[in-house]
Amino acid sequence: IGGADPAINPVVRAGIVAPTLQVITEAEITSAEDRRRLPIWGEFYNPYDAPHLCFTTVWREDFVELVLVVCRSARQGTIDTPGRTAFAAIAHHCRDAAMTAHAIGRDGALVLAGAFQALSACALAVDRYGRIVALSP
Rank of each mutant, 00 (worst) to 15 (best):
F63V: 14
A86Q: 12
A103E: 15
P82R: 09
A91E: 04
G108S: 05
R84M: 13
T56H: 00
P82C: 11
A91S: 14
L68I: 07
H92N: 14
C94V: 15
T85W: 09
R75V: 14
P82I: 05
R106K: 08
A97I: 12
T57V: 15
I104S: 07
D107L: 10
A91P: 01
F87G: 06
H102W: 09
R95V: 00
L68R: 02
G105A: 08
I90W: 05
W59H: 15
S73R: 02
W59P: 08
T85L: 14
A86G: 06
F63G: 02
R106C: 07
R75T: 15
D62E: 15
A98I: 08
L66D: 05
E65K: 03
T100R: 08
D96C: 03
V69A: 11
A101T: 02
V64I: 15
I104K: 06
S73K: 01
G77V: 10
V70Q: 11
G83H: 05
V69N: 11
C71S: 12
A89V: 08
H92R: 14
A97R: 02
F87V: 13
F63C: 11
R60H: 10
V70N: 13
R75F: 04
A89Q: 15
A88N: 03
L68Q: 09
M99P: 01
D96T: 10
L66K: 03
L66V: 15
A88P: 00
A97M: 11
A98E: 04
T100D: 10
A89S: 13
S73L: 00
A89W: 08
H92M: 12
I79R: 01
A103K: 14
D107C: 06
M99K: 08
H92P: 04
I104H: 08
A74T: 15
F63R: 13
D80P: 06
T57W: 00
T78P: 11
A97C: 14
H93M: 11
A98K: 00
V67S: 10
Q76A: 14
D62P: 04
A101D: 01
R75P: 02
A103S: 15
E65M: 12
R75G: 05
T81W: 05
Q76F: 13
I90T: 11
V69R: 04
S73Y: 01
P82F: 06
H92Q: 13
T100A: 10
R95C: 01
G77R: 03
I104F: 07
A109C: 08
I104E: 06
E65T: 10
G77M: 14
A86D: 04
L68W: 00
A98R: 02
A89D: 13
A98Q: 05
V69C: 07
I90P: 00
D62G: 12
P82Q: 11
I79S: 09
I79C: 12
A74D: 09
A91H: 00
G83M: 09
G108V: 03
C94G: 05
S73E: 00
A97W: 06
E65H: 04
D80S: 12
D80G: 08
D80H: 09
D62N: 14
T57Y: 02
M99L: 15
T56C: 09
D96M: 04
A97L: 13
A109N: 06
T81P: 04
T56F: 01
D107N: 11
R106L: 10
V70G: 09
R106M: 11
V70I: 12
D62C: 06
R95K: 12
C94E: 06
P82T: 06
